[in-house]
Design a protein around this nucleic acid. Structure first.
Lengths: 237, 237
DNA sequence: CCAAAAGTGTTTGCGCTACACCCATGG
DNA sequence: CCATGGGTGTAGCGCAAACACTTTTGG
């Protein structure tokens, strides 16, 4: 006799992705204006269902790739939502991931085909089902993580300036930082490599362009570092 | 026509619980020596399947209650495991929770009925499926969380001494701490209330018994606090 | 009176914060 | 030469780490 788990419920497993981006000014979300049922016409996260033969992370990457054309982004599982009535169509649990992408790398055609747009966190519309709650948890997690690990870089282009990095952190934590202290702290990590180039888009003094020291970056990711102490308390869980 | 998600796969959803306890000396896990299939005779975490009408947390609490007779413990979702072949019987994803319990409160009859025992982390046997990995992630998470939030108290009895609390932290992080600095740091939080009683089990000087200031405790849980700076780097993620 | 563990005090130094000042660029 | 924004330096303070000493208890 072959062993089975006969009498237990089989349930739909969905995945939803919170996709963060940064345009130099504000922290943004890639959201979908649904042109399909259910809740057609309303805003939601990008999602999909788990297939029989793929892992959760594979499914999340597939969904992300379909929407943005991007692969190998920073992707992290956050939490699984499973309230019985969360999807009115049928009992569905949803495994939620968040990803960090460099807006400049996106595939605009793919995004438009899905009827998606980048929307500032401040302008976020109400989303369907429990997606608002998912965004809330994702933002909390991003703040928590970015205060202790240098994942912010994932949102920037290859080459970036220190003031750009600062703007990013200010957007994530919705706060103001001291230019001098920020610069010293970041420089102290040895995470930045001088490229020798300067940011020519600026009108006044051109800032140095840096690239990420990927070797050190890996070490900082594996380890733990009070990246921005002043931000720690803003990242309460 | 009613809307359905017809063509997508329905999948078994399991829950597995990592149950941490502390006996005054070592950090322990409540593990099951399986007397049922599959993998009968081997060690595993306590688990079960999600029912149609319950939420994930409800299911986790049900499983925890069945094994220990305990309710209202500290319980937190960690991660969902979903590799296609993780359960050889049938495709199953597993939502993993960890809980902190006071060993003294357990229901011994229930535990024995499930063929479960408390086992020190150091003596942990190999577990079935991907359960070893789950424990690994749970321990990481406990360390990460306990360095920034005072959840350690959940593992202790109502009344406890400062040296007991210190022993607990030393067990969690597998390290030695300075008595003087530890005491000062903990006292500075105003989390402890003097009971006036003393620990009579000790042979030499009897230590003060304290209880938890639950009001302040809630605030510390909601917020963020570098509880034990020296431990922060041990809690890398 | 001694050993073992609990409790209190003190110094030192590093790192965060809050500032002031100089440099580069375009108009 | 002036406005804007980038880059570097410095003083003060608070907290954590590394210590020594006293107190309580049982034998």
């Amino acid at each position: 006799m072959t062993l089975t788990y006969q009498h237990n419920a089989r349930i739909l497993v969905a995945l939803d992705c919170i996709i963060f981006g940064f345009d130099g000014e504000a922290l943004k979300l890639l959201l979908i204006k649904r042109n399909f049922e259910p809740e057609c016409g309303k805003w939601s996260l990008m999602g999909g269902f788990l297939n029989e033969d793929e892992s959760l992370e594979e499914a999340a990457r597939r969904i992300l790739y379909n929407l943005t054309g991007l692969q190998n982004n920073y992707l992290e599982q956050i939490k699984t939502f499973g309230a019985p009535e969360r999807d009115p169509v049928e009992r569905t649990i949803s495994v939620v991931y968040y990803s960090l992408v460099n807006i400049a790398d996106q595939d605009i055609t793919a995004i438009q085909a899905h009827n998606a747009s980048w929307i500032s966190l401040d302008d976020k519309p109400k989303l369907i089902f429990d997606h608002d709650q998912m965004v809330e948890v994702a933002l909390q997690r991003l703040r928590y993580k970015a205060a202790l690990h240098p994942i912010g870089f994932e949102l920037l282009p290859e080459k970036f300036t220190v003031p750009q990095l600062q703007k990013l952190y200010e957007a994530i934590y919705n706060t103001q930082l001291d230019r001098r202290n920020f610069s010293r702290k970041i420089m102290g990590t040895d995470l930045l490599l001088k490229t020798g180039e300067k940011d020519m888009t600026s009108v006044t003094k051109k800032a140095q362009l840096y690239s990420l020291n990927t070797e050190k970056y890996q070490k900082y990711l594996d380890g733990y570092y009070t990246f921005l102490p002043e931000l720690a308390e803003l990242s309460a869980v």
